[in-house]
Design a protein around this nucleic acid. Sequence first.
DNA 1: ACTTAATAGTTGATTTTGTAACTAACAACC
DNA 2: GGTTGTTAGTTACAAAATCAACTATTAAGT
Lengths: 145, 145
Amino acid sequence: MAKKDDFDLEDFLPYLLNQAAEESSMAFQRVYKGRYGMLRNEWRVLFHLGNYGQMTAKEIGTRARMHKTKISRAVSKLEKRRFLTRTKDDEDRRVEHLNLTATGQAAYRDLHSVAKTYDQKLSALFPVAEAKMLRNMLRRLSGIE
Amino acid sequence: MAKKDDFDLEDFLPYLLNQAAEESSMAFQRVYKGRYGMLRNEWRVLFHLGNYGQMTAKEIGTRARMHKTKISRAVSKLEKRRFLTRTKDDEDRRVEHLNLTATGQAAYRDLHSVAKTYDQKLSALFPVAEAKMLRNMLRRLSGIE
DNA sequence: ACTTAATAGTTGATTTTGTAACTAACAACC
DNA sequence: GGTTGTTAGTTACAAAATCAACTATTAAGT
């Protein structure tokens, strides 16, 4: 019996995106969780600081599109584990500048290298041009309103 | 100052996938939440039953890759709201067959049509061939182990 | 038949998230 | 300079996810 409708749940882009996102996050999650007991938000904050250097919580939130409470909690945990330090801005004392400690940087380098390898493995599923196109399409989809 | 490393966080596929998934889910979430007070898991169960007809919780879990506790709770809520009914299997009385009620089917049809329209809008961001390729790539990424 | 293992689904305790209200600091306006 | 508004970040409480333990039923091995 053929489907009476041509639009199948498994063609629904948000669904496909979710499945792919979840599946592809899993393997990597096991690494940062296993090695450093980190949660996803903590890893994201770590990665942003490692990648872009000193940032404020606000800046991370804007870039990563994370809500400020997520960042606040992630920063607290990372601070408790001595992965980062805070320093108040002199001119605007509401603002805190976040910096990775040596420990944090080591963790970042480690995870960065795992991520890079993993990304290459995923990308290798497709021809180079297609993998590049995929990234562009995903970026485009992220910018919808 | 150029980046010292060629691998940027914003190129990381799991990250891009998550952003795109989250962004594209949001608009649709507002609909099923607003119209029917549903959560994502409830919508997923509803959609599976609407799409494939009678199923067991186990079958839904396998197809949608949802954990059984999520399904159990989603099914309870949908049952409470009279969107579905359960019937015990005669041969194996552990198994419950789930079916949408008329109300459930109406909700499904409504949301299905919204999803279809929304999917077309998303797909229209790209040429037809590319949109098709995107789906294929996402399916491929979902099947990684 | 009887013990052990496996399976479908539920429940409860803990962790994590989400939402909203909050503090503290700055800015703008009059 | 005092009122009002805005912004950075935190905290408290409710909602939801996770993980392990649980019930009930079936299957398998002896």
